[in-house]
Structures are given as structure tokens and as C-alpha cells.
């Protein structure tokens, strides 16, 4: 009995291993079939990347509505789209430029390749703003926190801040000011701030950039402590200015949003909000896909269902 069982187990293991081997080889040798249906991948309606993408391709109504999209679309998060396009030869999706890697192919948009250089020189069109929002003057846990936050915002507009933003794959706004030339205006940075915590939050798309910025700014400003808790663009406003939330344990001193402010968010005085960078969004396909570029119209037609097969777009 025991012998039979162990032999059966070994056979089962063997078969499953062989099955794995076979399957991997099938895919790598298969060629691209243009008559196949386009599998459309998207973020969910609350995503800032989705808003940036849909507005960028002239399909703004799809930013918040699933009903206008092609039937049978798939909803995934940024990593989910990236990893599934790596598998799905017939899929199309979009991710932010900073997450593009060599497992997928980033498509050029309206003839312009998705590179940082092309975003800086403003030729690449598919991009979204990175915004910041502050609490109202005098609404901080202490005057020191408020002074540090103001110094931080000034730092965002310097070439020093810009370098860090660019190093993270986002694109800083042009600037000629250096931190050394303006730091005299911020006395708070001369003192020891190591016992002061400043809370950062908002868009999770900006988290990497924001963390790099605070890591660089802390030693420049008395080694204050930066606490990062990024939960989404909507929280940029909610956790800094929404009276119901800003004073709870999740309240923030600086909130980031990866889209333009809208609705009630615009009631916050203009001095409390601004832009720090651009982020480019890239349409991506599987490496096996022969396509190298798309236009805004191509993408719109793929997402609204006018184009259903890959032959439609190449024809």
C-alpha cells in the first residue's frame, strides 16, 4: 500500500513538472496573431492614472465611467497591469512612465517615444500633474511644523528638489533657483528639528518621489522626521483640509495628488496648493506585439470598442 502510494505521488509530481516545462516552451515560440481580440486593461474609476490616461487620449468620459468602455475590459492595479501585459500577448494597458520596465513594451504616443527627455521638452503628450496641498496657515500642530512645511514647498521649486524628482522618474517643473540661494529665508532649518515630525500623505503614485524628496530635505532642515502614509489622491485634500478628517489620527501636514484638484478641493485657497512635477503615462503591450506606436485616436478606439482586433489598428 505504502509503496503504491509513494510511486503514485512520484508519478504525479513528475507529470506536473513535465506539464510546466511544455507550457513554457509553447508560449515563447508562438507568433503574434493579428486576428485575435484586443484585451483591454484599465485601472478602476478612482485611479488618478486612469484619469490622466483617459483625458490624455481624448476619452475623458471614461475617466470615471466604466459604461463607455469596450465590453469585456479588465480592471487591475498598476502592478497588476504591468505583470499581466507581460503574460497576455494580446493585451493593451497603461502604467506610469516610472514603472515601465523591460518585461513589457512602452508604445510611442502620437509619434513621440515615452522617454523622460520627451516629457521635459514637452513633446510627449500623455502626462498628468503631480500636485501638493497644505493645511491652512496656523492649522499645524506647531509653528515649527508650519515653517518646515513652507521651507519644503520652497525646496520643491529649486533645482535641488528638481534633480531628486527627475531621478525618481517623474519630471520636475523648470527652475533656476538653488536651495542655497533661498535657505536664508527659512530660519527654521538652522535649528535642530530632530524632535519634530511632519506628516506626508495623499497619492500613492507620488510616494516614491515624496520619500526621496523628504530624505534629501531632512538633513537640509535640522533633521526633522518625515512620516509617509500614502493612501490615494483624494486623501491629499481630505487629510489636510476636510474638517471631518484633518484633525483625526490620519491628518496630514502635506498631501500629494497625482491629478488636478477638482470639486470641493478647489475651494482650498490657491496659496495652499501647487504643482511639483509631471508624470508621464505610457500605453504598454506585450513584447511579442509588433506594434511600436499609437495615436491618441488609436487608443480611444481600442478603449471604446471601435477597434476589436489587432488587425484593425494596423490596417
Amino acid at each position: 500500500m505504502k509503496k503504491i502510494l509513494s510511486i503514485l505521488t512520484m508519478l504525479l509530481l513528475g507529470v506536473s513538472l513535465i506539464a510546466c516545462g511544455e507550457k513554457t516552451t509553447t508560449v515563447s515560440t508562438s507568433s503574434f496573431d493579428e486576428t485575435k481580440t484586443i484585451n483591454v486593461y484599465t485601472r478602476d474609476t478612482t485611479s488618478g492614472t486612469r484619469t490622466g490616461f483617459m483625458e490624455g487620449i481624448g476619452f475623458a468620459e471614461a475617466a470615471t465611467s466604466d459604461s463607455v468602455l469596450v465590453e469585456g475590459f479588465l480592471i487591475k492595479d498598476n502592478t497588476g497591469i504591468l505583470s499581466t501585459i507581460g503574460i497576455d500577448e494580446y493585451g493593451i494597458g497603461y502604467v506610469s512612465l516610472s514603472s515601465v520596465n523591460n518585461t513589457i513594451k512602452g508604445l510611442s504616443f502620437n509619434g513621440v517615444a515615452p522617454t523622460e527627455a520627451n516629457v521635459i521638452n514637452d513633446t510627449y503628450g500623455l502626462k498628468r500633474p503631480f500636485m501638493w496641498m497644505l493645511r491652512a496657515d496656523g492649522d499645524y500642530p506647531s509653528q515649527d511644523v508650519e515653517d518646515i512645511v513652507n521651507a519644503f514647498v520652497a525646496f520643491l521649486g529649486t533645482t535641488d528638489g528638481g534633480d531628486i524628482i527627475n531621478n525618481q522618474g517623474a519630471i520636475a517643473l523648470p527652475s533656476t533657483t538653488t536651495w542655497d540661494s533661498i535657505k536664508a529665508n527659512h530660519d527654521v532649518c538652522i535649528q535642530d528639528n530632530s524632535d519634530i515630525t511632519v506628516r506626508f500623505g495623499g497619492s500613492d503614485s507620488i510616494q516614491k518621489v515624496a520619500q526621496a524628496l523628504t530624505a534629501a530635505f531632512m538633513p537640509k532642515c535640522g533633521n526633522f522626521v518625515a512620516e509617509h502614509d500614502h493612501t490615494g489622491s483624494s486623501d491629499a485634500y481630505k487629510r489636510t483640509n476636510d474638517p471631518a478628517i484633518k484633525d483625526t489620527s490620519v491628518g496630514k501636514d502635506v498631501g500629494f495628488a497625482s491629478r488636478n484638484f477638482r470639486g470641493a478641493e478647489l475651494e482650498v485657497p490657491a496659496i495652499q496648493r501647487g504643482q511639483l512635477a509631471w508624470d508621464a503615462i505610457v500605453a504598454i503591450v506585450n513584447l511579442n506585439n509588433p506594434l511600436t506606436g499609437v495615436t491618441a485616436e488609436d487608443l480611444k478606439k481600442m478603449y471604446d470598442g471601435t477597434y476589436t482586433t489587432w488587425a484593425d489598428i494596423q490596417g
Partner: peptide, 16 residues
């Protein structure tokens, strides 16, 4: 699942 679908001639949506 994606490769299995391809084997039986079904166009899977990335295995999802």
C-alpha cells in the same frame, strides 16, 4: 491558466 487556454485554442485575458 493563460498557457493552458492557448493550448485549447481559447484567447484568455492574461489568465485572469
Amino acid at each position: 491558466v493563460y498557457d493552458f487556454s492557448a493550448l485549447i485554442g481559447y484567447q484568455s485575458k492574461g489568465g485572469n
